[in-house]
């Protein structure tokens, strides 16, 4: 379970997040939506331990972000918006490279199977020759090597074709429902959010938040 309590973040005089509180249970997919500059990426960075809140606390599976940072980080998978891959490596070499530095050891078969789950089958191909969709899948696969509990994705499907988008969506739903992962991701595509997520956190102007429950992929119920 992820618990966020009254977090506050500001840059200079500009308050980006103010008293934000929410929680996420295992198997839940939460979409973060809002205008550009509303604070989606800042929230994702705070949840990813890449930045510190000015006030408030966050816990993941009971582990405090400030007191048990190392333990928390072992449980987080972060998919940055930028594709962070070795372009001159093959898919296999990229997976091997990050596996070697990862918390968990995985065999080549396990790594190959991870890629196959998201329909990334070009194992021996150079990354520079892959399509944008394939690169996004590999970007995601690398973040899943250590089998994280919380998966944070910053616009993971931006600029890719519909087929790859659906394949990534299907993979995320499977991970959440079958493996009890908590998934939070930002997107500007409301159709995708409604189709994929269980809940949506809307970050509005003046630090006004809505927590929406999505039912049957269509209607939303305002929670807060």
């Amino acid at each position: 379970m992820l618990q966020v309590n009254g977090i506050h973040k500001r840059f200079g005089r500009n308050t980006v997040l103010n008293q934000l509180t929410f929680s996420a249970v295992d198997g839940e997919i939460i979409g973060l939506v809002g205008e550009n500059g509303a604070g989606k990426s800042t929230l994702l960075k705070l949840l990813a331990t890449l930045d510190l809140p000015d006030a408030g606390s966050i816990t993941l599976e009971g582990k405090s972000y400030t007191k048990q940072l190392k333990e928390v980080r072992k449980r987080i998978g972060f998919v940055p918006q930028d594709i962070v891959l070795w372009e001159h490596f093959t898919v296999a070499e990229n997976m091997r490279f990050f596996e070697k530095l990862s918390w968990t050891k995985k065999s080549t078969t396990a790594l190959q199977s991870l890629c196959a789950q998201m329909k990334l089958d070009k194992w021996e191909e150079k990354v520079s020759t892959l399509s944008g969709g394939m690169k996004r899948k590999l970007n995601l696969a690398i973040s899943m090597i250590h089998d994280p509990k919380l998966l944070l994705l910053d616009e993971p499907t931006v600029g890719i074709d519909l087929k790859s988008r659906k394949e990534i969506g299907a993979y995320l739903q499977k991970e959440a429902k079958e493996n009890n992962k908590i998934i939070l991701y930002t997107s500007h595509d409301m159709d995708e959010i409604i189709h994929l997520c269980d809940r949506v956190i809307c970050i509005g102007e003046d630090q006004f938040y809505h927590d929406l429950l999505i039912r049957e992929g269509k209607s939303c119920l305002l929670l807060t």
Binding site: A48, I76, F78, P80, V84, L101, W103, H146
Partner: peptide, 11 residues
């Protein structure tokens, strides 16, 4: 390459 963001979650 902004590789550093990945290292926060590595051994």
């Amino acid at each position: 390459k902004k590789l550093t963001s990945r290292f926060a979650f590595m051994r």
